Amino acid sequence: MAREFHRADRVADAMRRELAQLIQKEVRDPRVGMINVNDVEVSRDLATAKVFVTLVGEDDREKINASMTVLNKAAGFLRTQLARSIQMRSIPRLHFRYDETSVRGQELSALIEKAVNSDRKHNDDDSDSSED
């Protein structure tokens, strides 16, 4: 049976695609670097949208906060640009959020890799001592 798509899901997907292009082409502030639009969550009443973004190659918390401030100030402009490309009666208000899931995922991957390497080293030491 096919999955039922709700209108909010379809709007969120369209907004994600358009915002990725708009931010890249239209936002010319030097404080905003390379941005990935990871997800958009649109409320059921289509009034607000949370836009989850990550900054490529950026770890400095001050620069991340500055970029998020710029994006939230440009939300009205981006909303106007969205209205030109997406045919809807009203475009949801945009609220940009920094998405820390990729950073957290990298931290967890590093911890797992460290544990695997430690386990291998421990197993290698055990096999060397049993050969004596």
Rank of each mutant, 00 (worst) to 15 (best):
F77H: 00
H95Y: 13
Q87I: 14
V51N: 01
L108P: 01
R44M: 06
L46P: 05
T54A: 02
V42M: 07
A66H: 09
R61T: 14
R84L: 06
T101H: 12
L82E: 12
G105V: 04
K63A: 13
N117G: 03
V56T: 12
L46D: 05
Y98W: 13
V70R: 09
L71F: 00
K73F: 07
S102H: 07
S85L: 15
L78E: 11
T54E: 08
K73Q: 15
D60I: 03
S109A: 14
F52L: 08
V70S: 02
A75C: 09
A66M: 08
S67L: 01
G105F: 06
F52T: 02
R79I: 04
T80D: 07
E113H: 11
E100C: 06
E62Y: 02
N117R: 11
D59E: 10
E58L: 08
L108R: 12
A83F: 03
I91A: 04
S90H: 14
T69Y: 13
K73R: 15
S118C: 00
D59S: 13
A110D: 11
L94V: 09
M68I: 15
V42H: 02
N72W: 02
F77T: 04
Q106H: 14
T80I: 05
L71W: 08
V70C: 01
R84N: 14
E41L: 10
R61H: 11
N117P: 00
A83N: 10
A115K: 03
A49M: 04
R79M: 04
A47I: 05
T48F: 10
G76D: 00
L82A: 05
L55P: 05
R93G: 03
Y98T: 09
D60T: 06
A110Q: 15
N72M: 01
L46W: 06
V53S: 11
F96Y: 05
R79F: 01
K114I: 09
K50L: 03
L94Y: 06
G57L: 01
R104Q: 15
N65S: 12
R61L: 09
S109Y: 13
I91R: 02
R89I: 03
A49V: 00
R84A: 07
E107N: 05
A47K: 15
A110L: 14
T80Y: 05
E62L: 10
A66C: 00
D99K: 05
V103E: 14
T54I: 11
P92N: 05
F96D: 05
K114C: 01
F52N: 03
